[in-house]
């Protein structure tokens, strides 16, 4: 471990709420609005942290543990993610399986908290969240397995370091399919538009938002911040495989990685602006499609 490895997690901690600001700004520009300030999410977080929390008498410790465990899981996952050629804080063979496991733990904590309230809406949201992630997780795992296979490496840091321009020249279609599959998983896992609408205010159509209706104050701030970090995590993953680490020195690489992460945010904003949300019945087709693309890439990548 060297000090340089501390930079990616610290950057994520500081800049991840800005990603949501960028997405909102892009959507506003497309709609011809001026949009909220770029730092709006920071203001929201500061406001929420100053508030007190109210807990229903029907809830137990599961409800209170949800946001904390979720944030802890995503923070741990962040330590596994390299950024722009800078190695991750923590790397070992097979760490991408731990990454998906930690994301699963985060989801489990959230779903547990939602079910603990006993609200029928939250139960419905929890059911949908689990249903969608059950479809998105195989796609993510197969995509990561394809990357590991292509790079002939087993840890995220080494995979991102090993993927170079040569891979894009020789097996471009394989990597392109994986990028598309990971992009769809990113949209699904972060509750973005073709799958879930972050701006919806009708409980019947919400998925992720409806699970957190009963959380308030610092708990909700934790959830919001965790969601921002999760978006950063996926954006860094996509960036890590698209931008070849190459032989540049660390600093230009880091800048390229940061630029990539924000480009992903802009891309998400564009997708949200030009697409309508899919009907709930179509969502499984989209996600199984992502899984099929990842599986195709895996098969094409076999030597």
């Amino acid at each position: 471990m060297n000090l340089l490895s501390l930079i990616p997690p610290v950057l994520a901690l500081i800049l991840s709420p800005l990603l949501l600001g960028v997405i909102n700004r892009v959507k506003a520009r497309f709609a011809g609005r001026r949009g909220p300030p770029l730092l709006q999410v920071y203001y929201d977080l500061a406001k929420l942290l100053r508030k007190g929390a109210v807990y229903s008498r029907t809830t137990t410790w599961v409800f209170r543990a949800g946001p904390v465990v979720g944030l802890a899981a995503v923070l741990t996952a962040l330590c596994l993610m390299p950024l722009g050629g800078v190695p991750a804080l923590w790397k070992f063979p097979g760490d991408f399986i731990l990454l998906t496991g930690l994301l699963g733990l985060m989801r489990f904590a959230m779903v547990g908290a939602a079910l603990d309230t006993g609200s029928s809406f939250e139960g419905m949201g929890a059911s949908r969240e689990v249903w969608i992630s059950a479809l998105a997780e195989p796609a993510l795992l197969v995509a990561l397995a394809t990357l590991a296979r292509q790079a002939q490496e087993l840890s995220l840091t080494r995979i991102c370091a090993a993927l170079s321009e040569q891979h894009w020249l020789h097996t471009g279609p394989v990597l392109a399919l994986v990028v598309v599959a990971l992009g769809l998983v990113l949209l699904a896992e972060n509750a973005r538009i073709p799958v879930d609408d972050p701006n919806t205010h009708l409980e019947l159509t919400m998925i992720h938002e409806v699970m957190v209706l009963d959380h308030g104050g610092p708990d909700f701030a934790f959830i919001l911040y965790g969601a921002a970090l999760k978006l950063w995590l996926f954006a860094a993953l996509v960036t890590g495989m698209v931008i070849p680490a190459g032989s540049l020195s660390p600093w230009p690489n880091l800048v390229a990685g940061l630029g990539g992460v924000f480009l992903v945010a802009i891309g998400v904003g564009v997708v949200e602006s030009v697409m309508a949300r899919l009907r709930l019945l179509i969502v499984p087709q989209l996600l199984v499609g992502a899984g099929a693309l990842a599986a195709t890439a895996f098969l094409l990548g076999l030597k």
Binding site: L169, H170, T171, G172, P173, L177, Q285, V288, G289, A292, L293, T296, L300
Partner: peptide
């Protein structure tokens, strides 16, 4: 990795699209 591979990948993708369409 030339144009032939590109065409073949497109054929695979169109087949998958047909199955799901």
């Amino acid at each position: 990795m030339g144009w032939i591979e590109f065409i073949l990948v497109l054929v695979v993708l169109t087949n998958l699209k047909l199955l799901a369409s």
